[in-house]
Amino acid sequence: EYSEEELKTHISKGTLGKFTVPMLKEACRAYGLKSGLKKQELLEALTKHFQD
């Protein structure tokens, strides 16, 4: 599980793409985000969540 700060850091540095799909799905579930099946959809959901 990833902390909010850790995820925000990866988003701001542009390194969230280094996460694997299972890692991204886990992060989306942890924050109650609707997650797609594609890596890009997962990245967009997390990025949008933490930028709002």
Rank of each mutant, 00 (worst) to 15 (best):
E1S: 05
Y2L: 11
Y2M: 10
Y2T: 08
S3A: 03
E4F: 11
E4Q: 07
E4R: 07
E4A: 08
E4D: 06
E5R: 09
E5P: 06
E5N: 08
E5Y: 10
E5Q: 09
E6P: 02
E6F: 13
E6H: 12
E6M: 13
E6T: 14
E6L: 12
E6C: 10
L7R: 02
L7H: 02
K8E: 09
K8P: 01
T9H: 11
T9L: 12
T9D: 13
T9S: 13
T9Q: 12
H10L: 03
H10T: 03
H10A: 10
I11W: 09
I11A: 07
I11F: 04
S12Y: 11
S12H: 13
S12W: 08
K13G: 08
K13V: 07
K13L: 09
G14T: 00
G14A: 04
G14I: 00
G14Q: 09
G14H: 01
T15D: 06
T15K: 02
L16H: 03
L16Y: 01
L16A: 05
G17Y: 11
G17D: 15
G17S: 14
G17T: 11
G17C: 14
G17V: 14
K18E: 15
K18L: 13
K18A: 12
K18R: 12
K18N: 15
K18D: 13
F19G: 03
F19Q: 02
F19I: 04
F19M: 11
T20E: 10
T20L: 00
V21R: 08
V21K: 04
V21I: 09
V21M: 09
P22D: 15
P22F: 05
P22N: 14
M23T: 14
M23E: 15
L24K: 00
L24E: 01
E26C: 08
E26V: 09
E26L: 09
A27V: 09
C28A: 08
C28M: 06
C28N: 02
R29C: 08
R29W: 07
R29G: 08
A30V: 14
A30W: 07
Y31V: 10
Y31M: 13
Y31F: 13
Y31G: 02
Y31Q: 09
G32S: 07
G32W: 01
G32H: 13
G32K: 11
L33N: 00
L33C: 05
L33S: 00
L33P: 00
K34Y: 10
K34H: 11
K34G: 08
S35A: 15
S35N: 03
S35C: 14
S35G: 14
L37Q: 09
L37S: 11
L37D: 14
K38V: 09
K38S: 10
K39D: 00
K39P: 05
K39F: 01
K39T: 02
Q40K: 12
Q40N: 13
E41A: 07
E41Q: 10
E41S: 05
E41I: 02
E41D: 12
L43I: 11
L43E: 11
L43P: 02
L43K: 04
E44V: 06
E44L: 09
A45K: 06
A45S: 10
A45C: 11
L46G: 03
L46F: 01
L46S: 06
T47I: 12
K48G: 12
K48Y: 07
K48E: 14
K48M: 13
K48D: 13
H49A: 05
H49Y: 11
H49M: 06
F50G: 02
Q51E: 07
Q51M: 08
Q51V: 04
D52F: 02
